[in-house]
Design a protein around this nucleic acid. Structure first.
Length: 309
DNA sequence: TCCTCCCTGTTC
DNA sequence: GAACAGGGAGGA
């Protein structure tokens, strides 16, 4: 389940394989995998891949269209730098003619296969890169998607427009202050708040549980009840966990692989995620407790983690 | 603010 | 053969 560190790892491993390459054509093997902009597929033929980047859990590919295709675009080029909703988009992507925006959801993955390779059972999209091979978008559970978008359309996409800040894009003190301001209005649990992409972008089930354990906060605590010094601990813990996971190329549980087919290593550092009924690595308490929050499996140590009500 | 649904492969 | 994995949309 690619969260921020896994998507970041995929960007880093995919980029050197496809940047600068030209897309000859695209095959759509599952129509719902092309969620938006499918009528623009023909424009992509001959497009050059300018950039591969990330925002939240989304992987964004910037394209420069072939000369004959540019004039077909419905909107005039050139974005205002202060356009709301675009402030988190790297400059190199604002300048692209067209964007491919991917959400990998639980099982989306990329792999560059040799030219002419046959699709696999879960291959949903194939980008023919000519001599550079075929880029496969595989997705067993078919929750993932690709959107073909103009940068100008991003602010009108509700999901994009609602995304909160990048947790690694600011100091831990500022992140803590942001948490304090956002959590104060919430009646839900602090874990639900961490998973809320409108509050902070890119955190999923793994890093929510791990950061709350590291900050010694019970995930069932009411978000607004956690004292500010604990929110600083949480901000520091979240950033540390995300940075360490990126360093270790993400967490490989079940099927996650980067764009070179390699597994990450951060799963070996899990303190609580997936360790229900196992002993706490810090206090030795015999069996970590499990519960459901926001419909997500949650694991925590009832001894180490303080409950705030 | 919470629940159900989407989807398929793995585990019990 | 049921339970489980879970991000986000949509509905209660």
């Amino acid at each position: 389940m690619p969260e921020l560190p896994e998507v970041e790892t995929i960007v880093r491993t995919l980029k050197p394989q496809i940047q600068g390459k030209t897309i000859r054509s695209v095959r759509v093997l599952l129509s719902k995998a092309m969620q938006y902009g499918a009528e623009r597929l023909s424009l992509i033929s001959g497009a050059r891949i300018l950039e591969v980047s990330r925002r939240a859990k989304l992987l964004v590919v910037g394209l420069g269209l072939a000369a004959g295709h540019k004039k077909v675009l419905p909107l005039a080029r050139g974005t205002q730098p202060d356009m709301p909703g675009l402030s988190d988009l790297p400059d190199c992507l604002r300048d692209a003619d067209l964007l491919l925006v991917f959400h990998l959801k639980m099982t989306g993955s990329f792999f560059v296969h040799p030219q002419g390779a046959e699709p696999l059972p879960h291959t949903r999209l194939v980008f023919d890169l000519g001599d550079a091979g075929n880029l496969f978008f595989d997705d067993m559970r078919t929750f993932g998607y690709c959107r073909i978008m103009l940068a100008e359309e991003l602010p009108a996409w509700p999901f994009w427009a609602s995304l909160g800040p990048e947790p690694l894009g600011m100091s831990s003190e500022r992140l803590a202050a942001h948490f304090a301001a956002q959590f104060a209005k919430k009646r839900s649990s602090i874990k639900s708040a961490l998973l809320d992409q409108r509050i902070v972008a890119g955190v999923g089930n793994i890093y929510a549980d791990e950061s709350l354990f590291s900050a010694r906060i019970d995930p069932r605590s009411k978000a607004g009840a956690v004292p500010s010094e604990r929110l600083l601990a949480l901000a520091e813990a979240l950033q540390a966990v995300l940075r360490q996971s990126i360093e270790e190329c993400g967490s490989s549980i079940r099927d996650y692989r980067d764009a070179l087919g390699n597994a990450g290593a951060f799963q070996n550092s899990f303190a609580v995620y997936g360790r229900k009924d196992e002993p706490c690595k810090v206090c030795g308490y015999a069996s970590l407790q499990g519960c459901k929050l926001s419909g997500r499996g949650t694991v925590f140590c009832p001894v180490c983690q303080t409950h705030f009500e």
